[in-house]
Amino acid sequence: MNLLTEENRKRIGNRLFYVALLIELILMIAEKSEYYFDFESYVFRVTFALTVLAVVIKRHDKKQWLLIVAVWVFTFICYRITGRNELLRFSTFVMAAQNINLGKTMKATFWINLTGFVAIALLAVTGIMGDVYKVMDYGRGNENELRYVFGFGHPNTLWGCVYALMLLWLWVYGSKARLWMWGVLLGLLLLVGKLTASRTALAIGLFTFVLGLIVRYATGIGRKKIIYVLTSLVTPVFCVAFSTWASSVGYIPRYEFGHPWYTVVTWIDENLNNRLQNIYRDTAKHAGSLQTWKLFSDKESFEYFDMGWVRLFYWYGIIPAALIALLVIAFIYLCYRQRDAWTLILILSLSIYTVIEATFVSVYIGRNMLLPVLGVYIGYYLERMRNDSKS
């Protein structure tokens, strides 16, 4: 009896992936709280080893192996140059997701996130760990501004977790949700938006909510090619273009008072809570501003700031970030092949959100709920190509 049949290899590989995903989700939830854990790098090594094993155990043809090895070589080179191993870890995680049960995986991810985030809030409310609210200057010139955090350390972190739950809910339950469920979701978004005072993030959340309603009740819209084309123009094209511009105008002499663009830049900057000028002003070497971008980043480019697409180019380099942008376009194409408007909503919303917040440009795999979807859809496409070559 051959224990390493293709079916058994797939089953073993999938179980390894599920274990890695569970560990990553628990680690991400712990990081969202005010609990300090000092052994993250060791946990990342364990989950990376699990996903490598999952990739190796699963069956691949020669062309697929060439692609896998090429990705590993490129991301390993990026790691050696920048000292950051996220591209290697994330790409391996995506490749390990091939053939998983996507519906059950996303549903489990939603409920694990919901349980963890509720636990963080309850620990804060009961006084066990974390603050319910914080009074400080959040960059708006008010030193006594009160915003609620419910154990998440910062109001934007609280909002980001509710936002992630909304995206997961849309993917898992949106297509069958009744109107009253949409009403509850809207009320929750408005309540959390009020408590956290995260204005721009709330606007993106409401925009996503409207898109979800349209896809839910506009029958057949997911089969329209135009929505996939329009999404690819917004993300990554517009998101990258705006972020590139933003990284060049933070506080540069040609945009000082009296310049024709001064009013426009100032208005945008004020509505983004000074994110443009902070890229230039927050560090002595102006980390994240356009002059700090390189074809490949380096081990000295480690500073944090809010704008996510800018961080992507700064942390990893122009070439890796450009390839990621192309991968997003490819992902949109795969959604079109699947006629999957729900994943399309998540791609669009996350890309716009990442312009202003870097929550999803992170070392934590568990933050990005789209990685398993990407892995499965790439698997579908490669399998289809293999079958077409046989026919």
Rank of each mutant, 00 (worst) to 15 (best):
A287F: 10
L290A: 06
H286T: 09
K285R: 13
F313G: 04
A322G: 13
Y280G: 05
F305A: 08
I319M: 08
D282R: 10
I279C: 01
E303K: 10
A325N: 09
C335S: 05
I329P: 01
Y316G: 04
L290R: 06
F305P: 03
R339T: 13
I332M: 00
L326W: 09
R281P: 01
W315L: 14
A322T: 15
D306G: 03
E300M: 11
E303D: 09
F305E: 01
I319C: 09
V310S: 09
L290M: 02
I318A: 07
K294F: 12
L323V: 00
Y336F: 15
I329Y: 03
L334E: 04
D282V: 05
L334H: 04
A325Q: 10
Y314S: 01
H286A: 13
F296H: 03
I318W: 05
G317D: 07
V310R: 06
A325I: 07
D298I: 02
G288P: 04
K294D: 07
L295Y: 12
R339D: 12
F313I: 05
Q291W: 13
G308H: 05
E300R: 10
K299R: 15
Y304T: 14
S301T: 12
R337N: 12
L295T: 02
F302V: 14
I332S: 01
I332Q: 00
S297V: 02
V328G: 07
R339E: 15
K299T: 10
A322R: 03
F296P: 03
L327Q: 10
S289P: 02
L327T: 14
S289T: 10
K285Q: 12
T283Q: 03
V310W: 04
L327C: 14
M307W: 06
I319H: 08
W309Q: 12
S297M: 02
F296A: 04
D306H: 10
D298M: 05
S297F: 06
S301P: 04
G308T: 03
K299N: 08
Q291E: 15
I319G: 00
I279V: 15
I332N: 01
S301Q: 14
Y314I: 08
Y314T: 06
A325D: 12
A330K: 12
A322V: 13
L312T: 09
L334W: 01
W293L: 13
I318Y: 01
F296E: 01
A284M: 13
I319P: 07
P320A: 03
F302T: 15
T292S: 05
F305S: 07
W309L: 11
V310N: 09
H286P: 08
L326G: 09
T292Y: 04
L295A: 06
H286I: 06
I279E: 04
L295D: 05
Y333S: 08
K285D: 13
W309P: 04
L295S: 00
A287C: 11
I279Y: 03
S301M: 14
C335G: 08
Y333C: 10
E300Q: 14
Y304Q: 14
A287N: 11
Y316P: 01
K299W: 07
A322E: 08
F296G: 00
H286N: 09
S297R: 00
R311I: 12
A321P: 06
A322P: 04
F331N: 06
R339K: 14
F305R: 00
C335T: 12
H286K: 14
I319N: 06
K294S: 14
L326I: 09
Q338A: 15
Y316M: 02
I332L: 03
I279W: 03
A321E: 05
F305Y: 11
Q291H: 15
Y314A: 06
